[in-house]
Every structure is written in structure tokens, then in C-alpha cells.
């Protein structure tokens, strides 16, 4: 059998605070395979973002074993294993869109001659061709977020980690971006970890939905989606979709009662 891309076994993370230890993650077990689209869903404080940050090597688990591409998250980060998209686009206002996408290429030491090719490719992927010379403030919120996704894709990592990337956008823009994200995923075959608190968003996008609950942060359910890979927006009215959404809701409620 193929080894999972991301493998978490009994991962614990405890923060020491002035009010005593906080169990941000407790006993988290999860395997993510190549090409999976995994959503993490749960209420605030359930550790979904924390877990994503652990995968990214931005937090270090205090217990258990976590590997990314068979390496520690720290090593994986240094070998450019993933691109990370934050809730806010966080584009540099003093750089054009192209300049922003170029940022990781500069820092990672890609040869200058390759920059243009990388930038053109990802601008096409997020459908922002022709906007490269614009400054971020000249773009709408949705377009800025697309640019930030392009920035995360620029250096061609196999894994894309997204922390509520569309959380600050309105529903119509969000729908459109969800649809585009699925296309992008199909086109690039990336492994995607996606944090959200929207049930429809999680069900619509994912091949695997991880339901989490707080105090201590843990996984309460892992749902393998039975939806077909080709998903038009109106699949959300199908019975299958509603059934999965229902199970996610049940999982969230169970976690809440416990």
C-alpha cells in the first residue's frame, strides 16, 4: 500500500498558559492520501486551524507522531512541501499581483529566468490573467484571495493547506471560488487540507470530511464523501449531498454534547 502523504498518530498539543494547560489537540489520528481533498470542520476552538498549523510546521505537537511526505513537518516545510493560504489574502500592497506571486520564488531562490513561467502558469490557474500588473487594492476581495492562492501555488508544492480562505468573503463569491477551487484541484492533482466552518462548503469540496470538537480539540468523525468527483454547484440540492451534510451536523452536535 502507498504511504499516506500526511500521517498523524496520537498527536497531542498542549499550550501552557497562565490559567493552566490548554489541550488544543488530543489524540488526533488521521491519514491523508495523495490527491485527497480533506476538510476540517468544527466550532471555534476545536483545533482545526491548530492541526493545520502543525502540518505546516508552524506549531510543534507536544506528543504523538506527525509526518508530511515521510518527513517531520519542519523538514517538509524546508523542502517546500506545501503552499499555505490564510484567511486574509495578505498581499503586499507595495507589490503588483505578479510581484506578490514572485515573492516565494525570490525567497526560495528560484532562478530568475523561471519566474515568468511560474507566474504566468498560476495566474492562468486562478483565472487572473491580465491582472498581473494591477496592485492589490485595485482588485476585489475575491480576486485578492485568488491571487493569494496563486502565490501559494507558484512554487509547485504538492500539498495546499488552506485556513478558512473564503471565510471573509460573501456567499456568492464564495460559491464561485469553491467551484474554481475544485477545477484547480482536478487540474493540478494536489493534496488539499482545507479548514472551514461552513458545512455546505466542506461537503461540496471534500473527498474526506474531518469533524472536530473542542475541549480538548479532537476528531469526532471522519466521513469519506460518496459524491462523484465532478460536482456542479447544484449537486448541493441532491439527496446524497444532504445526507452527508446531515452526518456532519450530527457529528458536530455529538461533539458539542460530549
Amino acid at each position: 500500500m502507498k504511504k499516506p502523504v500526511i500521517d498523524a498518530q496520537n498527536v497531542d498539543l498542549t499550550f501552557q498558559t497562565n490559567d493552566g494547560p490548554v489541550h488544543a489537540l488530543k489524540n488526533v489520528n488521521l491519514e491523508i492520501n495523495k490527491g485527497d481533498f480533506v476538510s476540517f470542520i468544527g466550532p471555534s476552538g476545536c483545533g482545526k486551524t491548530t492541526f493545520l498549523r502543525c502540518i505546516a510546521g508552524l506549531e510543534t505537537p507536544t506528543g504523538g507522531r506527525l509526518t508530511v511526505n515521510g518527513m517531520t513537518p519542519e523538514e517538509a516545510r524546508k523542502s517546500r512541501a506545501y503552499g499555505y493560504v490564510f484567511q486574509a489574502a495578505g498581499l503586499y500592497p507595495w507589490r503588483t499581483i505578479r510581484g506578490n506571486i514572485q515573492l516565494p520564488l525570490e525567497i526560495m531562490g528560484f532562478p530568475k529566468s523561471e519566474w515568468k513561467g511560474h507566474i504566468d502558469r498560476v495566474l492562468d490557474l486562478v483565472d487572473l490573467r491580465g491582472f498581473g500588473k494591477k496592485f492589490p487594492w485595485q482588485l476585489s476581495g475575491g480576486m485578492q484571495q485568488r491571487a493569494s492562492i496563486a502565490r501559494a501555488l507558484a512554487f509547485d508544492a504538492d500539498i495546499l493547506l488552506m485556513d478558512e480562505p473564503f471565510g471573509a468573503l460573501d456567499e456568492i463569491v464564495r460559491d464561485k471560488l469553491n467551484e474554481e477551487l475544485l477545477k484547480l484541484w482536478a487540474a493540478t492533482q494536489k493534496t488539499i487540507g482545507f479548514v472551514t466552518h461552513s458545512i455546505p462548503e466542506a461537503v461540496y469540496l471534500s473527498t474526506k470530511i474531518v469533524v472536530m470538537s473542542p475541549r480538548p480539540g479532537r476528531i469526532t468523525d471522519v466521513i469519506e464523501s460518496t459524491l462523484p468527483p465532478d460536482r456542479p454547484l447544484d449537486i448541493r440540492d441532491s439527496e446524497e449531498f444532504i445526507k452527508i451534510a446531515h452526518r456532519v451536523r450530527e457529528g458536530l452536535r455529538a461533539g458539542h454534547d460530549a
Binding site: R80, Y84, G90, Y92, W94, L103, E106
Partner: peptide, 27 residues
């Protein structure tokens, strides 16, 4: 913090953080 985290995900050196983020942000 988000901006600093972003550069960490690129494995940026301290000098990159200073020249590419801190200095332009301070202008």
C-alpha cells in the same frame, strides 16, 4: 503574525523578513 507566518512557510531567512517585509511595511 499572519504575514510573519507566511514567510515562515517559505522558510524565509531573517534577512528576507527584514528586507522584503519589515522594511517595505515601515515606509
Amino acid at each position: 503574525q499572519m504575514q510573519l507566518d507566511l514567510l515562515r512557510t517559505y522558510g524565509a531567512r531573517q534577512s528576507d523578513v527584514f528586507w522584503k517585509l519589515r522594511l517595505p511595511s515601515s515606509m
